[in-house]
Design a protein around this nucleic acid. Sequence first.
RNA 1: GGCCCUAUCGUCUAGUCUGGUCUAGGACACCACGCUUUCAAUGUGGUAACCCGGGUUCGAAUCCCGGUGGGGCUACCA
Length: 506
Amino acid sequence: MGKNMPKKEEIRVRIAPSPSGYLHIGTARTALFNYLFAKSQGGKFVLRIEDTDLERSDEKFTKEIIESLHWLGIDYDEGPDIDGPYGPYRQSERLETYKKYLEQLLKEDKAYYCFCTEEELETEREAMMKRGEPPVYSGRCANLNEAEIKKFLDEGRKPVIRFRMPAKKIIFEDMIKGVLEFDTKLIGDITIAKNLETPLYNFAVVIDDETMKISHVIRGEDHISNTPKQIAMILALGFPTPKYGHIPLTLAPDRTKLSKRHGATAIADYRAMGYLSEALLNFIVFMGWNPKTDQEFFTKNELIKHFSIANMNKAAAIFNIEKLNWLNGQYIRKMDLSELTEECIPHLEKTNLIGRVGDGEWKITATDEPIIFDQLKKIIALEQERLVKLNDLSELVSFLFKRELTYDKQLLIWKKMTAQDVINHLSETEKILAKTDKKDFEKEHLEEKIKKLIEEKKLGMGETLWPLRVALTGLKASPPPFDVAEILGKDKTLQRIANAKSLLEA
RNA sequence: GGCCCUAUCGUCUAGUCUGGUCUAGGACACCACGCUUUCAAUGUGGUAACCCGGGUUCGAAUCCCGGUGGGGCUACCA
């Protein structure tokens, strides 16, 4: 490499959530695309916390955002908790910087103080809309003289700072949407700060993106209309313009912006429901992007390898939970059993089926019996191919943890059997099981024995297996009886069969 | 109201730039069948879409124009 080669401009992108709520699906998706864009090109991804609105910001949300991002594996290179060369990464800690540029703009007469009250502006806007005009600021305070200013100040009015919007066409090429054109006359002089110490969004973004050397601004398309405002300020400040890419929004099934009213919208909600982060990531990326092949499963590294912003869609996508569920089930099935068990244990604890008594030791809440990891693993194996999301688990396996099963005795009866038939069939299997050694109480062995019995005595599969299964589970849908018997163990298995028989006799 | 974005199965989408190979492909969901003691998983098959109207062209999902639908923005929020 020649020493005189110009250094290639570093790719730096960011997400800039405001800590006024949990990390939202939409924000996470924007973060993912930024992350993939950066990582696929050796760039840097930064997290910036936009907490200029102190009223609505809360540190607990900053923490939560960081945690959710971490859980998803969307790792940033610089952020509030990972220092870098362009920090600090919270807007509330960058006030000096904004002030400096605010003063510059004021001094150069590219911004001015506006004394209009919110009420005055409101009525003005309404009137303009009524007349079918774009609701732009009238410019009433654009050229105030000293006496007028003094008068307003004496009235006790608190001014805001407005940017003097030059009248021009602003054209930029969006990486996703193509060439976009705006007329600033329709925008007018926008407010950029409440005062020197409290900048407003559009201004703070411009300063931060420049001072953090952001090369590409990739964000939701709800920001398209902010872009000309920001470019106008960039031009006034003499900054270089970053490249823009506006990604389509994700919508709820009713085609409106995803919100609380539609149910879960926070990443943390999905985590709590037992969605796997890999599945969620895989799902989210497919709303708006696709590899142009039939491949549907992607690891994070594969995504990095295959991602291209040119493959992004232009239209909004609707959040389809059915597909997420399917994907999550697929990921669960492919998961290593020990790992899956680790993930599942907190859900069993949360529903109080088991309680932790020590390191790697639990006890069954209903019976006080101890249970170890390997036993839990067997239980998870039972449901691995049935699970859609982890918090469905407890309901599926609770029959294993109960002291006694309660169910309708009619459930024991297979098709046209009589109660006596069922008792007889249960007795046959009971005999075989009673003769089986405790250490041979293992599903393959049991299956072999019982199927042999069925064949020899011509008992019928359904007639034998259905009552047995119900006796052991109390459920009309469950895993096979052999698997259940192994987990239950000889004593409980026999006990449950006896219970079923007495239930029928009653 | 104004400005902007957008439009292929119910949903996610391929195909649109470079018109014919598209009687429009894949996936989810749904339905049927097979396997099966039940559920699940799995296998096979099926239903299902180019928003509408003009134009250009031998030929349009693809190009052009006009509608319509959906979405976003229009704050002293971000």
